Every structure is written in C-alpha cells, then in structure tokens.
Computed example of a mutant assay.
Amino acid sequence: MDDMRILICGATGFVGRHLTEALRQAGHEVIRAVRKPVDGQDIAADFRNDTSRERWLERLNGIDAVINAVGVLRDSRDNPMQKLHRETPLALFAACAEAGVGRIVQISALGVDSGIGTAYFTSRLAAEHALSRLPAATRWLCLRPSVIYGEDGASARMFRLLAGLPIHGLPMGGRQTLQPVHIDDICAAVVRWLSDAAASSQLVAAVGAEAATMREMLDSYREQLHRRPALHVAIPAALVRLAAKIGDRIPASPLCSDTLAMLAAGNTADPAAFAALLGRPPRSYRGFIE
C-alpha cells in the first residue's frame, strides 16, 4: 500500500515509541495522540476521559489507520483500566468505523481469553470483542503479545538485572512458562500487515520462537551476559503470595495478586500464526541480548 497517515494512541509508551519509529522509517506519516503534545505532529488526548465517539471523530480526518497501544498493568484511580482498556477503545473503534478509517491495530495481551477474571484481562477482552463487531470495511489486526523484550523496556531491564545476580530467587522454583517476543518482531509484523493491501482482519498470538520457564529464561539471559551459572533458590509459594498481597497495597509494585495469577497461568502459544504474519520465524529469547 502507499504511505499512510497513521494515528498512534499511547505513542509515548514502550510499544508506541518503537512503533512510531518503525512506521516513520517505513515512510508513513505518524500522528501521535498523547496527553502532552510536544510538536506539530502530536494531538492532545486524554485516554482516561475521551470515552465518546464524537470526541474521536474530530481527530480522524485524513487518517488511514489507527494503532491503539495504550495500556497499564495496574488499575488505579489515576489510570483506571475500565476507561483505558475498554471505554476509550470502544469509542475510538466506533469513530474509526464511522469516519471510514480502513485499518485498526490493537495491542492486547496473551491470555486474555484464559478465563482468569482479572481487571486487566477482562478489560482487554472487551476491546477485542468490540473489534470483532466492526463492519467488514474496517479491517483490524489484534496482537496478543507474550512478555515483550526490548533493550529499553521496563520488564527487559528487570529480567536482565535479575539474570545478572549471582543468586536467582525463583518464585515457586521459576516453573512459570513464558514465550518472550522481541519488540522488533512486533513492529515488523505491524508494518508488514499495514503494507499488505489484501490483509484480512485477524487475531494473532504474538510470541517468540520457543517457550521457556522463568528459570530457563533467566539462565539464558545470564549466559548471553557472559556470566557463570547462577545459584538457584526456590521461593516458597506462601511467601510469594504474601509478597503479592503486600504489592496490592503498593500501586508502583509490579507484583500483586492479579499479576501473580496471570503469571502462574502461563503465557505461551503456537508461533505459527505470528510467523505467517511476519513472513519469517520470530526470534528466540536465546538471542535477545546483543
């Protein structure tokens, strides 16, 4: 397809920043919807309060595609998931259909359909259901990423820090399964889908080439850092649950009862559909650290 005018919501976040760069490098014009505009290519948007279709319609004039990369891991009064993950995306998608925006990309999360009733999963799933109800003329790509790795990503920095320690404290032995996906593969898949004039609406699990337990992943990251094998210490489940309960009261903590439940459920999928979207196999976590 020809170069497009693309509106990215959540453009200042980890995924949004990388998508903005990748799409501009591919020749597209990117308009960033952000809370605090900093240049002429930005528009002001408040994802906590812009929950009406009319509010988004005025921003979609001349827009060919919209990408929604807004997301938070913890629910809070300042960043309510019901608004950010459900109400605002529903208004945005409805406005896209009315304005004739031809393409929508939604960044969701792997496991939203697992039946685990966390606010994160249920609010994300509601947005996915809204996509599936759009008119056929509005084509969409919904990516469900596993843990995303990128050098500047918060989770990647945390895992590299943990991997670098001589002793690995592993929650419940580190048996939780993950299938880390590289941010470069996420961006490449989005760019390729947008450039394909015949692309169809699709829901794709965005995962790396192979799954690993948390222990295996940290061991691999440590090996890539050229460190000697670490000593493994299993943290009993009771202590992990207690730490999660404490995290429930600390909004900045990445560990809480909900994140623990989602982690314990596992985070893996068949990579075949993502490989087809990419046009090549996705990268393996065994080669993420360069």
Rank of each mutant, 00 (worst) to 15 (best):
I6V: 10
L7Q: 10
F14W: 11
T20Y: 05
T20V: 06
T20M: 07
P37A: 06
G40K: 14
Q41H: 13
I43V: 15
I43A: 03
R48N: 15
R53V: 15
E54S: 11
L60E: 02
N61H: 14
N61F: 07
D64P: 11
A69N: 11
D75R: 07
S76C: 01
P80Y: 03
L90D: 07
V101W: 10
V105Q: 08
A109T: 08
S114I: 05
S123W: 11
S123V: 02
L131D: 04
L131C: 08
L134A: 06
L134N: 05
P135D: 03
A136L: 12
A136P: 14
A137G: 07
R139Q: 09
W140P: 06
P145K: 00
P145Y: 12
G150D: 07
D152F: 12
D152T: 14
D152I: 01
S155F: 12
A156D: 06
R160M: 09
L161H: 13
L162F: 13
P166Y: 03
M172C: 10
M172A: 11
G173K: 09
G174W: 05
G174P: 04
T177G: 01
P180E: 01
H182C: 10
I186W: 09
C187H: 08
A189I: 05
R192W: 10
R192A: 13
W193Q: 04
S195E: 15
A198P: 11
Q202S: 12
L203Q: 02
L203E: 10
V207H: 11
R222V: 00
E223I: 03
R228C: 00
L231Y: 05
H232K: 09
H232N: 01
H232I: 00
A238N: 05
A238C: 09
V240A: 06
A243Y: 07
A244E: 08
D248Y: 11
R249M: 12
I250M: 14
P251R: 00
T259D: 03
T259Y: 03
A273P: 11
F274L: 01
G279F: 04
S284A: 01
G287Y: 06
F288Y: 03
E290A: 13
